[in-house]
Computed example of a mutant assay.
Amino acid sequence: MEEPAIKIKKDIIVISGSSGLIGTRLINELAKKYLVIGLDNIGYPFPPITAECVCIDITSDKSMENAFERIRFAYGNRIASVVHLAAYYDFSGEPSPLYQKITLEGTERLLRVLQGFEVEQFVFSSSLLVYDSTKPGINITEESPVNPKWDYPQSKVDTEKILRSKRGKISVMNLRIAGVYSNEGDSIPITNQIQRIYENQLTSHFYPGKFDRGNPYVHLDDLIAGLIKAIEKRKEFSGMTTINLGEPETMSFIELQNEIARLLFNKEWKTYKIPKFVAKTGAWVQGLFGDSFIKPWMVDLTDDHMELDISRANKMLDWEPKHRLRTTLPKIIDNLKSDPQKWYKENDLKPPSDLKEKQSEK
């Protein structure tokens, strides 16, 4: 094999989906130690300048092959880790061929090209949503049954099967990740719940599910730390290893509801349980008059519950989340109060017409 055009001593990390929330933060941290190559769509947005940008069309064999020929020419045949963050997701609940084209076939295409390289590790960003629901007090482990209930987690389960059969000799770290949030928000379910209460929307006072159920989350900083741990410990693993990353404490819906209201208005929020058929009808009607976050299909999932056993992450990766959603909520709410317009924009939320008046009231 010919010598690479650029001789470097740093290990090479390749990250797909490199311009996203997770990819951007991960690249900036990894660039302190590694040479990072960011794979992303052609055109804006681009990965951070701390990474070399290699544009690809993940649905094209030719584009994928050209991208990795470019990497081989410049840096050679050795890649320490490929962190695969690129995937399709859509909260509308509508079926989409993009799950197949991007998440499944895109991953298979990437694995196929990597067989021609010396790759130490492939990190896949899966989701805790692949698991079957549990009950309060019953933890989910990596051996718990899977039961994806909509297209996004189903695409993750199907892609995990591809990884098992198509990885060749590449070691795979399959990380099933909880919902990601940050001090600014950056979590669609959390920020929408905050928005409904902040605006005193009628829907903020009604809920069709069991109040004591909820889902785990993980702070962006802790997720980045977990990904870095997985990369640093890559030589300790072989085959395919699945590890859950999330906080060991799950806040229930009503705990979140009341804590958000306390932080915003210093009072308990009046919340009433309604039948599921009423909630579905209401969500459908709202959808007629705007792009409401709450969709009829979500109503069936309101009784679902997950809480995590993260002992494997602790043992294998020496990872323990330093943050908790409960103690980060005050920072998220403070950011909203201090600059509502900025908070709405950063969280891609449609502001109410009286947002300026709300800001002046604070």
Rank of each mutant, 00 (worst) to 15 (best):
I332A: 05
S360Y: 03
P4Q: 12
M316Y: 13
I194A: 05
G137S: 07
T191V: 13
Y99G: 07
T281K: 08
S155T: 09
F211P: 06
M306R: 11
N347I: 00
R262S: 15
R72E: 11
G43L: 02
P216L: 00
M64E: 00
V36A: 09
Q154R: 11
K33M: 01
N183I: 02
D151S: 07
F237S: 05
K33R: 12
T103R: 04
S60Y: 07
R72Y: 10
I58L: 15
G287H: 10
L245K: 15
T250P: 01
S252C: 14
Q201F: 05
K322Q: 14
E236R: 12
K276H: 07
V113Q: 13
L35F: 15
T271N: 12
Y272G: 12
T134F: 02
G185W: 07
N183S: 09
P95L: 06
L336I: 04
I27V: 13
L317Q: 05
L39W: 01
N66V: 03
K342P: 11
D304Q: 11
E259L: 13
G239W: 01
D300L: 01
I197Y: 06
N77D: 11
D334W: 04
N66R: 12
G43Q: 03
G23S: 05
I58T: 07
S252P: 03
T141A: 12
L325K: 03
